[in-house]
Amino acid sequence: MADRAADLAITLRVIGIGPGGPRQITLEAVDAIAATDVFFLLDKGSRVAQLTDARQDLLDRYARAGHRVVTVVDPPRDRNPDDYRAEVLRWHTARVDALEAAIGEHLRDGGSGAFLVWGDPALYDSTLRLTGQLAARIGPGLTVEVIPGVTSPSALTAAHGIVAHDVGEPVLITTGRRLAETPPGADRNQIVMLDSHLAFTETAAPDDQVYWGANLGTPEQVLISGRVGDVADEITRVRVELRERTGWVMDVYLLRRAR
């Protein structure tokens, strides 16, 4: 079926759906969902079933009658590899293989498919890399459309009612894995994503300020802010409790160095 995809004229939409709240979705995304025939969901197992339910809620609200949902089993991934980049590239290739087969099987000539992406597709998400590989394989018959979404950093600062920086200051967006590598002078305002280990608890000074948020825009949203020395233990505890209660945590934080 994968070979058949190369013979199709199809549209793939990569639709940003925001950090989790069904109202944190743009009108452009609503229109894109309503225009799509088939939605491809990568199944990551029962641990994140609530995330799948949240996507389904958006489809129930905005997708047109007769749309279809195709679940593709997400290939396994080593979360602690010796070579992180090589493992991610291998995993992406396995994903593309599975998605190409699904497209060939489920999309008709002239049809459209979509991926619903948390937050914004351009910020710490791999879907556009996957569609880039799909485009290289399928060829000119594939058109990729990208619809931006509300990012978790913007949802975080809005939820806390703060500006991400002082007047004229820069903001660095990084990951927990790279937080310790931030050079002096670039670390005044850091928005940190993909940090399941809460790296700031080891790298930040007690007087630094942290603004943390988890499961933003959902009924399980949690916000904590304050001096690192005062709230780090609370954030660590609440994160564990939230994961145990809901089965998932998507969190982000702003770390502001003390002057």
Rank of each mutant, 00 (worst) to 15 (best):
K44N: 13
K44Q: 15
K44V: 09
G45F: 02
G45M: 11
G45Y: 06
G45W: 08
G45T: 07
G45R: 07
G45H: 09
S46F: 04
S46G: 05
S46L: 05
R47L: 08
R47M: 07
R47T: 08
R47P: 06
R47Y: 06
V48L: 00
V48A: 02
V48G: 00
V48Y: 00
A49V: 01
A49W: 00
A49S: 12
Q50E: 09
L51F: 09
L51C: 05
D53H: 10
D53G: 08
D53R: 11
D53V: 05
R55S: 04
Q56A: 12
Q56S: 11
D57L: 12
D57K: 11
D57F: 03
L58W: 06
L58M: 06
L59V: 08
D60F: 01
R61M: 13
R61V: 06
R61E: 11
R61W: 06
R61Q: 12
Y62D: 11
Y62C: 05
A63T: 02
R64S: 15
R64W: 13
R64C: 14
A65P: 00
A65W: 01
A65F: 03
G66R: 03
G66P: 00
G66Q: 02
G66A: 03
G66H: 03
H67F: 11
H67E: 03
R68D: 12
R68E: 13
R68I: 01
V69E: 04
V69T: 15
V70D: 05
V70N: 04
V70A: 12
T71E: 13
T71F: 02
T71M: 03
T71S: 12
V72N: 08
V72G: 08
V72W: 02
V72I: 15
V73W: 02
V73R: 15
D74S: 11
D74W: 00
D74Y: 02
P75A: 09
P76E: 15
P76Q: 14
P76D: 15
R77Q: 15
R77G: 05
R77A: 13
R77L: 10
R77D: 11
R77N: 12
D78H: 05
D78A: 06
D78Q: 10
D78C: 01
D78Y: 07
R79T: 09
R79E: 14
N80L: 12
N80I: 04
P81N: 03
D82M: 01
D83S: 09
Y84Q: 02
Y84D: 04
Y84L: 11
R85D: 15
R85V: 14
R85W: 13
A86K: 06
E87K: 02
E87D: 08
E87W: 00
V88P: 00
V88G: 01
V88K: 10
L89K: 07
L89S: 13
L89Y: 05
L89C: 05
R90S: 14
R90P: 00
R90K: 06
W91K: 02
W91D: 14
W91I: 06
W91L: 01
H92F: 07
T93V: 06
T93A: 15
R95Y: 03
R95H: 07
R95M: 11
R95T: 01
V96Q: 08
V96I: 14
V96H: 10
